[in-house]
Amino acid sequence: GNIFIKNLHPDIDNKALYDTFSVFGDILSSKIATDENGKSKGFGFVHFEEEGAAKEAIDALNGMLLNGQEIYVAP
């Protein structure tokens, strides 16, 4: 299952995104959108192997604080 994450703190990188979401299941890919200079655009995507893991991550993390910013997590 794919999920979309927005309002990410600029310091959150691909590894931090992966580490945050990997507790919910096996991740096939995770990516933070960046500009041409490699600076985070504040949103990203995680693709879980299983749909159930994606739903669990959405339920658990939507509205949670990550590096002091409330993140939005949705399908």
Rank of each mutant, 00 (worst) to 15 (best):
residue 60 A to H: 05
residue 33 A to E: 05
residue 46 V to D: 00
residue 4 F to I: 02
residue 30 S to L: 07
residue 17 L to Y: 03
residue 53 A to C: 12
residue 6 K to D: 00
residue 58 I to P: 02
residue 14 N to F: 03
residue 35 D to K: 12
residue 48 F to W: 03
residue 50 E to Q: 14
residue 72 Y to C: 06
residue 17 L to F: 14
residue 59 D to A: 11
residue 34 T to K: 05
residue 40 S to P: 10
residue 67 N to S: 12
residue 31 K to N: 03
residue 48 F to P: 00
residue 69 Q to Y: 13
residue 9 H to L: 14
residue 65 L to H: 10
residue 12 I to Y: 04
residue 66 L to T: 08
residue 10 P to S: 13
residue 54 A to F: 11
residue 75 P to G: 15
residue 10 P to I: 11
residue 64 M to L: 14
residue 69 Q to D: 13
residue 31 K to W: 04
residue 48 F to R: 00
residue 62 N to K: 14
residue 4 F to T: 02
residue 68 G to C: 11
residue 61 L to W: 05
residue 54 A to V: 06
residue 23 V to W: 05
residue 6 K to S: 03
residue 31 K to Q: 03
residue 25 G to A: 06
residue 8 L to R: 00
residue 67 N to P: 02
residue 27 I to C: 03
residue 75 P to D: 04
residue 11 D to Y: 11
residue 44 G to Q: 00
residue 40 S to N: 15
residue 29 S to H: 00
residue 55 K to L: 12
residue 27 I to T: 03
residue 44 G to C: 06
residue 48 F to G: 00
residue 33 A to L: 02
residue 65 L to I: 13
residue 16 A to N: 07
residue 10 P to V: 15
residue 59 D to P: 06
residue 18 Y to G: 05
residue 23 V to M: 13
residue 66 L to H: 05
residue 7 N to M: 07
residue 50 E to Y: 11
residue 2 N to Q: 02
residue 13 D to P: 09
residue 62 N to M: 15
residue 41 K to L: 07
residue 12 I to R: 01
residue 6 K to T: 01
residue 18 Y to L: 10
residue 61 L to A: 06
residue 38 G to C: 08
residue 72 Y to D: 03
residue 63 G to A: 09
residue 16 A to P: 03
residue 12 I to V: 07
residue 72 Y to Q: 06
residue 61 L to M: 06
residue 60 A to D: 08
residue 37 N to L: 13
residue 54 A to T: 06
residue 49 E to D: 10
residue 58 I to R: 11
residue 39 K to Q: 11
residue 42 G to A: 12
residue 12 I to N: 02
residue 52 G to F: 15
residue 55 K to D: 10
residue 52 G to R: 12
residue 30 S to R: 02
residue 36 E to D: 13
residue 26 D to L: 07
residue 36 E to T: 15
residue 27 I to A: 02
residue 23 V to S: 07
residue 20 T to G: 07
residue 49 E to Y: 11
residue 23 V to L: 14
residue 9 H to D: 15
residue 46 V to F: 02
residue 40 S to I: 04
residue 71 I to P: 03
residue 75 P to I: 14
residue 59 D to H: 10
residue 49 E to T: 13
residue 53 A to I: 15
residue 67 N to E: 15
residue 71 I to V: 14
residue 20 T to F: 05
residue 51 E to P: 12
residue 48 F to I: 04
residue 69 Q to E: 15
residue 33 A to F: 03
residue 50 E to R: 13
residue 29 S to D: 00
residue 25 G to L: 01
residue 6 K to G: 03
